[in-house]
Write a protein that binds this DNA or RNA. Structure first.
Length: 276
DNA sequence: CATCTCAGTTGTATTACATCA
DNA sequence: ACTGATGTAATACAACTGAGA
């Protein structure tokens, strides 16, 4: 959103790389979520394990402590044990199951019991590199076919589901941004139209004054240079020429006709402007 | 029926800011 | 007045859910 927040986000991502040995230990480090987020806990942990066995759940290698220098080797994935109904979980991992050979599930670390009993789901942050590559890919195509998804997931060392979710959220953000822009444009447009309307109303009042002014008060016409040759059409209230004789009221009233009435809005009127 | 996308929601991490000792 | 700890609101975002195509 704002620059400040963007800064915050980037700072957050940086922490993933810079936190070093402390990564993933305890609360507070983004690294914890990045390197250890897959360490779900408590009852959910068991649930997750069941899931993994059931679907040969893919768990790329993971070690506790200092992450590899290669940020892409830091697996930004975790298993969400909360709010995970079985059908959803099955669906969620469908693409993984369908197309990937999974290594044995054995990479859980020793302190996986860290939040046993808390039921908290850990927050994942993609690494800067992963985000950048996803962004690049999104620029090329905002949706992915299964093959692309698989390839990207493999490349980024993420689960296909994560790639899928990232694209979903990314599309949503894009749409939201576009909507905000559209809204802003419409808002400005509305303001302009309101101003214009106000101005035209004022002008109309002035013209009505002219029309209904007694003929014995010629000075009022002097306020409008072309007024002496103009009159107001009673049906459409447009200015028409009384002397030019051309019949082209638009041209004749040009000095006063700032914004021609949209004919489509008046189409149902018996006295259309064209009738003048 | 399986799969995908989307809109809406949830939960966590992070930051800025205010308050207090 | 300055400083560090603490609480809180706001925000970003990954992940989930359910509906509809």
């Amino acid at each position: 959103m704002c620059e400040k927040q963007r800064h915050r986000a980037s700072k957050t991502i940086n922490m993933v790389h810079e936190d070093g040995l402390s990564l993933g230990l305890g609360y507070g480090g983004e690294g914890a979520t990045t390197t250890e987020s897959k360490l779900s806990s408590d009852g959910h942990h068991q649930k997750q394990q069941d899931l993994q066995f059931k679907h040969c759940y893919y768990e790329p290698s993971l070690t506790l402590g200092r992450p590899s220098d290669d940020s892409n080797s830091v697996v930004s994935s975790f298993s969400n044990g909360v709010n995970t109904s079985a059908p959803a979980a099955v669906k969620r991992e469908r693409d993984d199951v369908a197309s990937e050979e999974r290594p044995a599930v054995s990479s859980r670390v020793s302190d996986e019991d860290e939040d046993v009993g808390t039921g908290v789901r850990k927050k994942l942050r993609l690494t800067k590199e992963q985000s950048a590559m996803l962004e690049d890919s999104f620029k090329e195509h905002s949706t992915l076919n299964p093959k692309q998804k698989q390839a990207l997931a493999k490349q980024l060392n993420l689960r296909p589901r994560q790639v899928e979710v990232w694209f979903q959220n990314r599309r949503a953000r894009t749409k939201l941004k576009q909507t905000e822009m559209d809204c802003e444009i419409l808002k400005r447009c509305c303001e302009n139209l309101t101003d214009e309307n106000r101005r035209l109303q004022k002008e109309l009042q002035e013209l009505k004054k002219i029309k209904y002014a007694p003929s014995s008060t010629p000075p009022i016409y002097m306020q409008f240079p072309a007024a002496a040759t103009l009159s107001v059409c009673p049906s459409c209230e447009r200015m028409i020429s009384s002397t030019g004789g051309s019949g082209d009221n638009t041209k004749a009233a040009a000095p006063f006709l700032i914004a021609p009435k949209p004919t489509h809005l008046y189409g149902s009127f018996t006295n259309s402007p064209a009738a003048c």
